[in-house]
Amino acid sequence: MRVLVEIVEGPLTPVKLQVGEGTGAFVVFEGVVRGEEDGRKLEALEYQVYEPMASKQLESLANEMVEEFGVLDVAVWHSSGIVKAGEVSFRLVIEGVHRHESLEAVGEFIERMKRDVPIWKQPIFAPTKPGGRRSRSNFEKHDGPKKPVRTTAKKSKRKPKQ
């Protein structure tokens, strides 16, 4: 069982992934910030991540996928802070022996993440008029939890690099 979790400040950059031994299905899902929401032009999303709980929850979800679906590897990266439209904010890589359990695990992981992982996003809309103000809601600074940081929960032996 190999699990990797990372919270990354800003957008995710392209990553070189290596297929592991025994893998018959290599599934990569990337979440991209859309340039539109509810008919309004979206400039970016700002992600608020409650650490270390978010990383712990993601790691727990990854382990659940291994135990419940029998997949071999789970690697997940999620952005914190501002990610512009067109950029990648979430990447999930699941490797399994066969496609069926791998594809199923991808869908289930995302469903559970959207229910149980303390990450929130806030839209930053483009100005509606030239020179107008951006519609933006900044998250206030928390003095309690630590600031979002790059966190590696458990490194895969295959070491996919971000």
């Binding site: 270390p52 712990k56 979430f90 993440m113 959207k114 229910r115 303390p118 929130w120 996003k121 309690g144």
Partner: peptide, 29 residues
């Protein structure tokens, strides 16, 4: 409610040094 970075049941006792967080609807991804 999450205590020390984990969701807790309603009957979980909270100590003076615990970190307590309210987790509403999340929206990652």
């Amino acid at each position: 409610l999450a205590v020390n970075h984990a969701f807790v049941p309603g009957d979980q006792t909270i100590g003076a040094k615990d970190e307590v967080a309210l987790i509403g609807m999340v929206s990652g991804g």
